Simulated assay, not measured.
Amino acid sequence: MTKSIIAALLLLIFFTSCKNNNKTTNETAALNSIKVDEDDTKTGSFSFDGKSVEGAVSTQYFGDKVKGNFSVLCQHDNDGGAENPNFALLQITFLNESDAINNPSLKVFNGPALAMSDPMPGLASITLSGRGNGLASGKSFFGTGKTTGSMSVSDRTITLKDITLYSREGAMKTVNAAINF
């Protein structure tokens, strides 16, 4: 039940952010107790279904910057218009930034959203979403009990190798990534 509440909270934050079009990303995030770090322009790359994309990387701190969850987002947005959308978002959320950088044995969390209350060190949730390139609006792929592959962080670069993510309907995507944060 806790997982459902957390997932609902994250979706509410996401939809609230999308509806506040007249506010900047940082203003909207601040209203939702999320701190967005956009000081450095960094890029990352990831692939799924044999399609490679590059995108801007940003980080988020949920609550306290030291103790709160820490998230790295890589967003590819190549506006192909309504006829040919091309948007993909890969989000990796950790217990906190220190756990992301210092934990030698990271494992993929079983579910779409990492627990914000009573989280476990060494777990990271991975979510792939978007529109176009085989991604459907409103459908996310995330870690489950069937997820395979490996994840590591070295020198502030997240490396994903053959991580299998699944939709609620059971569809699968295999993700590889190199994201510098």
Rank of each mutant, 00 (worst) to 15 (best):
5 I>Y: 10
6 I>G: 15
9 L>K: 15
11 L>D: 15
15 F>G: 05
23 K>M: 12
26 N>T: 15
29 A>P: 10
29 A>S: 13
30 A>Q: 12
31 L>H: 15
33 S>G: 11
36 V>A: 07
37 D>G: 00
37 D>H: 04
42 K>P: 07
43 T>F: 06
43 T>N: 04
44 G>Y: 00
47 S>M: 07
48 F>D: 01
49 D>R: 00
57 V>E: 03
61 Y>N: 09
62 F>P: 15
65 K>P: 07
69 N>P: 13
69 N>Y: 04
70 F>R: 08
70 F>W: 03
71 S>G: 13
71 S>Q: 15
82 A>W: 11
83 E>G: 15
83 E>A: 15
84 N>A: 08
88 A>E: 00
89 L>M: 06
93 T>H: 00
93 T>A: 00
100 A>C: 14
105 S>W: 02
110 N>I: 06
111 G>Q: 06
117 S>G: 10
119 P>C: 00
119 P>Q: 02
124 A>H: 14
134 G>L: 01
138 G>I: 02
143 G>Y: 13
145 G>H: 08
147 T>S: 13
154 S>A: 11
155 D>L: 06
155 D>G: 09
156 R>M: 01
156 R>V: 01
159 T>F: 08
161 K>T: 03
166 Y>E: 09
168 R>V: 04
171 A>N: 15
171 A>P: 15
172 M>D: 11
174 T>V: 05
174 T>S: 12
180 N>L: 07
